[in-house]
């Protein structure tokens, strides 16, 4: 079954988010899909974070890679993208790809088969992952879009990045809700972290200072089966 078609037909124009003239679906599972380009972007997978922390004595469950790949598998099978861009920090550290359990490696390789796959270098994984197909790049320009790991300090229209793990928080009726989010101002977009063990940083944090045009900044918060677009005036720090 070709879910991507079914899904695309369900998406009205209003559900598409504009980034520098291109239109993309912010999927509530935390990936960005450009229907015209048949391109899927995912950021900050942080594969093998569990084993990375285990090396330093925190023996947290070694199932994060499996969980992350399972979710990635689901979105890829829904959209069947021709191109996949993993926006950096795909592995939690340089040795991650090597440590990965063989069963996980096989699943990952199967996911990559038949499509163009780009590993954008991140600060956690500056080198190409060991023994895996796909092309490793510093950054990647496609049409009016520029894909890179860290958002550049100098404003670049059409830039899509990750690294900061954005989340947003609102308060309604005395209750606080915090969710991962896409953060975009129409010109650039920062993607939420996808990995099972990744934490998040509020879009109002100082780390984001100067990155967005504040008057058009929106947080696209991840709901359980839809995106909630929240304007900056509703957002709370912390």
């Amino acid at each position: 079954m070709n879910f991507s078609l079914a899904r695309a037909s369900l998406i009205g124009e209003a559900d598409l988010v504009g980034i520098s003239g291109e239109r993309a679906i912010c999927d509530p599972r935390g990936v960005l899909y450009f229907p015209k380009l048949e391109l899927l972007a995912v950021s900050d997978l942080h594969l093998e974070k569990g084993s990375s922390l285990a090396r330093r004595g925190a023996l947290i469950p070694p199932y994060d890679t499996g969980a992350t790949l399972l979710r990635l598998q689901a979105v890829i099978s829904d959209y069947q993208p021709a191109v996949v861009i993993s926006l950096g920090d795909s592995f939690h550290d340089g040795g991650g790809a090597e440590r990965m359990h063989s069963s996980f490696r096989e699943r990952l390789v199967a996911l990559m088969a038949g499509r163009d796959w780009f590993w954008v270098a991140g600060n956690h994984d500056p080198e190409a992952p060991a023994d895996l197909p796909g092309e490793t790049v510093r950054e990647l320009a496609i049409g009016s879009l520029l894909f890179r790991h860290e958002p550049s300090k100098v404003r670049v229209e059409g830039e899509i990045s990750g690294h900061l793990h954005p989340c947003a928080r609102i308060v309604q009726r005395g209750r606080s809700v915090r969710r991962r989010c896409f953060a975009g101002d129409g010109g650039r977009m920062i993607m939420p972290a996808f990995g099972a063990y990744t934490g998040s940083l509020n879009v109002l944090d100082r780390a984001y200072a100067g990155l967005f045009r504040l008057e058009t900044l929106m947080a696209y918060m991840l709901g359980s089966d839809r995106i909630f677009a929240i304007s900056r005036s509703m957002l709370r720090p912390g």
Binding site: E13, A14, D15, L16, V17, G18, I19, S20, G21, R23, I170, Q172, R173, R175, V177, R179, G184, D185, G186, G187, R213, T216, M218, Y220, M221, G223, F228, A229, I230, S231, M234
Partner: peptide, 23 residues
């Protein structure tokens, strides 16, 4: 609660959130 917040935005900003983008 999220829906409430999002609805408020829609009321304040007009229809689709994409309109907020500067295309």
């Amino acid at each position: 609660l999220l829906l409430d917040a999002a609805t408020l935005v829609e009321e304040a900003m007009g229809p689709g959130p994409s309109e907020a983008g500067n295309e």
